[in-house]
Design a protein around this nucleic acid. Structure first.
Lengths: 339, 339
DNA sequence: CTGAAAGCGCTTACAG
DNA sequence: CTGAAAGCGCTTACAG
């Protein structure tokens, strides 16, 4: 059924030129006579020729592919992040290969890690998808790496792209305190060692301190950035008898779980208790109480990180640290009437 | 900084064997003496060797990569879909390359489409991401293709994976009619030529007819499966003076937009009007009124489609049609008190 | 169980 | 502007 695929040799023969010329036409890598070029392209179309990518990669020592490493494929930020990365890759003619950690961990003893210098020109590393030693090893070999949602490991200068987590949170908490008079604010932390969570907590503490308040240890729960876990953590805090006047859930998925749980428990949001999140996920405006949150531009993060990686691959240099601005998004769950 | 990458020749020399032997050890493709194998692996580790993928692909005439074609990277189903595909790819040792249509359309006149036989062993084609002629061309060339959320073009036998859209919708509408006594049900259609939307409409009509009812043309709107567009379509229907007792929004994203809009307009959901969706997106339980909907197993769809493609690549055969079961998910927006 | 050698289909100096 | 030829780093019959 499948006749044999034509190669560059077939095209050259049919068009009456050398394979060098065919290559040049296809890659636009050198001037070729108008008429010759036309003939080659006509032949390419007629034989439905498409150059073998593996051969191109091998000969050119480039893969024109970048890899994205993630802990898991999940979360409300994933789609916009990938959208941004994909947009940049399209603009620059790169392909995108995706690797989630389970895949990385499954590789057998004697086999290689499925990603790296052998099949990509560079890697986008999301949060904790790669251990510091491996980041360090690759970086020191000169392999292009850009980190997303995390800083460079100590002592290294790996370019990274992060959100203005602390400042964004500070604006958010300032709003709760200054506009709504909140004084006892609970916090649901994300996964351990998660940088986003760490800096958001710093922002919370900074705002509290600025207003002469502090973070009550009894008002800290473990939300893991997951709706059901965050809901349970919030319930536990409230059932312990503590009476926060607001909960900062750490992210929006947690806020969704917490708001739903609070309503089920008979609390009124925001009248009895305010709830605020972080991310401005696509569900934020649709929650039972439209969510006041901080907008983290995930699409832009994906695009920017990809852009830095392309720059690193092509020119050998990139910005060491890109901090993307965040923005307060007021809806109703803080107590405002707007929207 | 980056010293030269070792090749298979370096490993062979260091280990005192031929490159054939190194290749056999790495690929486990033939029996090799225990002691020889040990020595090779030790050398591989010591030199941090990882085989050049392009060379492998070129020599073996396989890419071990499959491609995913999508119209856009967006929607609540995207993350679970990709999760399922990724899981299957990991299990079977394939890599995944992603292509969204904007990328496909951007390819210049004289350049090749960025995906196909030259860089993948097969393609997963989502809905309308590839025109029928192209599907036909590739399939007739014997290139492995599996369609997702759509049937094979007429006359061809391309394997495809779809949801039980019609039956799922029928259960949903039966519920509205039989349990809640609805008789005037509005429908918001998805994008034109979208198969999911088409079959859901058929399911709606089947259920109505079964109960001696019919679909009132004045109660059909264009929702496009997008929240804001669906919200506008619903508003238009209501402002026209029509008084449906329920709205089937076609999918959950539309339901989110519609519910929010109805509440804003002062309608009570479900008391004044019931709203039901389709998909069981992750936002469904978190909406202001928890959404009654039909669960479409996207993760499973991704996994299954990928599995069929792997089978097609490896054995040359796959199931021509896989229909994944859907399931009614009762929450509150239909008028039930449960949950 | 192991090795020598051909060949995969391109790109890219080099020479003209 | 064009061609002849080397070479990219592997896999895989073939032979032993």
């Amino acid at each position: 059924m499948a006749r044999k695929k034509p190669t560059i040799i077939d095209i050259a023969r049919e068009a009456g030129v050398s394979i060098s010329t065919v290559s040049r036409v296809l890659n636009n890598s050198m001037p070729v006579a108008e008429e010759t070029s036309r003939r080659v392209l006509e032949t390419v179309r007629r034989l439905e020729f498409s150059p073998n990518q593996a051969a191109r990669n091998l000969a050119s020592k480039r893969t024109n592919t970048i890899g994205l490493l993630l802990p898991t494929i999940s979360g409300g930020f994933f789609t916009p992040l990938l959208e941004g990365i994909d947009r940049c890759m399209s603009e620059n003619g790169f392909d995108l290969l995706i690797f989630s950690s389970p895949k990385l961990e499954r590789h057998e003893f004697k086999r290689m890690v499925p990603v790296g210098e052998h099949n990509t020109d560079g890697l986008l590393v999301f949060t904790s998808s790669l251990v510091d030693e491996e980041i360090s090893r690759l970086h020191q070999r000169g392999f292009p790496l850009v980190l997303l949602h995390r800083h460079s490991p100590p002592g290294l200068q790996v370019p990274s792209v992060i959100f203005e987590n602390q400042k964004g949170t500070e604006m958010l908490i300032d709003h709760l305190i200054e506009v709504h008079g909140c004084r006892k604010i609970a916090f649901l932390a994300g996964p351990p060692m998660n940088e986003d969570s760490y800096w958001r907590e710093q922002g919370l503490r900074a705002s509290l301190q600025k207003h002469g308040l502090e973070l009550d240890p009894d008002l800290i729960g473990m939300g893991e950035f997951e709706g059901p876990i965050a809901a349970a953590a919030a319930r536990k805090i409230l059932q312990s008898g503590a009476r926060p006047d607001a909960i900062f859930t750490g992210d929006d998925e947690s806020a969704a779980g917490v708001i739903t749980e609070l309503l089920r428990m008979g609390w009124k949001v925001p009248d009895d208790i305010a709830v605020v999140g972080f991310d401005d996920d696509y569900l934020a405006p649709y929650l039972p109480v439209p969510l006041t949150t901080v907008r983290a531009p995930s699409e832009q993060a994906g695009y920017t990180a990809a852009k830095q990686l392309v720059s690193l691959i092509r020119t050998g240099s990139a910005d060491l640290l890109t901090v993307l601005p965040t923005e307060l998004v007021i809806r109703r769950s803080c107590g405002c009437k707007a929207n």
